[in-house]
């Protein structure tokens, strides 16, 4: 299990990194924390001819709230920095809650959110969380920049909207609507394993005490992170109570398309979605102001 040979470039400037990618195209892969790419290279299922190591591109390693409350996360920001940031935990508890379920501290030391999203594993927690938080992703290429919604970024298992010459540069998470409550829950075989099913929810109680905002996203629920818009819509105007949660869960279970894995049959995954969603919704409702 030794990686195949590659040319290694470790630019310090963003422009250099983009130029390298433009030059090498598909033959080149960006290397961020390496926690998904290096195992794949060690198994030789990934054999990039060129690695463009982003670890020295300092401008990609940023984290901070902007004036309008948007959280801007540089593509190279490590999980570790995110999870230790008290402000992130306060303003975006969903992010913090889900981060704790991702792998282990030893992986989070080097792993990045950016790399994780680009890896686009449908069992991964963060892509679903990005859907629930309506994150926007900033994609750069030499001489170009665009933003896509998280919902448009994930195209299939390990497939994203990134063009051959593009890089994910920044993740932008808008502020949570005031008063909303969030929750993340998953069932994995062991601590730190990918979830057999995971749910991320955002809820808000309107002035009339009824739900006026609901978002539901799930991981390990299909070829990409899955939103459950019909289930979310069904919550609107409802009292935040078990009956409504159960009804929403019943809808969500119809909206997802779990693919099954060595650990869980699709039927069991669906069952888990039905179990976790009401629990997560109840928890989010409790947390909503």
């Amino acid at each position: 299990m030794k990686p195949a040979a590659f040319d290694w470039h470790a630019p310090t400037l963003l422009a250099e990194a983009l130029a390298l990618k433009a030059g090498h195209g598909e033959a080149a892969r960006f290397l961020a924390g390496g926690q998904s790419l290096v195992p794949a290279m060690n198994f030789r299922v990934a054999q990039p001819a060129v690695l463009i190591d982003l670890n020295r591109v300092a401008v990609l390693d940023h984290l901070g709230f902007e004036e309008d409350g948007t959280l801007a996360i540089g593509a190279l920001c490590r999980y570790r920095r995110l999870e230790r940031d008290a402000e992130v935990a306060r303003r975006l508890p969903l992010l913090a809650e889900a981060l704790a379920e991702v792998a282990h501290p030893q992986i989070r030391t080097r792993g990045t959110l950016g790399g994780n999203l680009c890896h686009a594993d449908p069992a991964s927690e963060m892509p679903a969380v990005m859907l629930a938080l309506e994150a926007r992703l900033v994609l750069r290429r030499a001489g170009g920049i665009r933003q896509v919604a998280a919902a448009e970024f994930f195209l299939g298992p390990l497939a994203t909207a990134l063009a051959e010459d593009e890089m994910l540069a920044e993740i932008r998470i808008p502020p949570l609507p005031p008063g909303s409550g969030t929750a993340f829950l998953e069932v994995a075989r062991r601590r730190g394993d990918y979830a057999m099913m995971g749910v991320a929810v955002v809820l808000r109680r309107g002035p009339d005490g009824r739900c006026d905002l609901a978002r539901i996203a799930l991981c390990s629920a299909g070829p990409t992170p899955m939103a459950a818009p019909r289930a979310a819509a069904a919550l609107l105007g409802q009292a935040l109570e078990p009956a409504a949660f159960a009804a929403a869960a019943a809808l969500a279970v119809q909206e997802i398309a779990p693919m099954g894995s060595v650990q869980a049959s699709p039927a069991y995954q669906r069952h888990l979605a039905g179990v976790l969603l009401p629990r997560a919704l109840a928890r989010a409702a409790e947390r909503a102001a």
Partner: peptide
């Protein structure tokens, strides 16, 4: 394991625990 799971290769990288099997020496 050389895929990051077993932890036998854990070292401290700038004081933080990390897997030595998931980084290239040049890094």
């Amino acid at each position: 394991c050389e895929h990051g799971v077993c932890g036998a290769c854990t070292i401290l990288w700038d004081g933080e625990p990390a897997r030595a099997c998931l980084a290239f020496a040049v890094q």
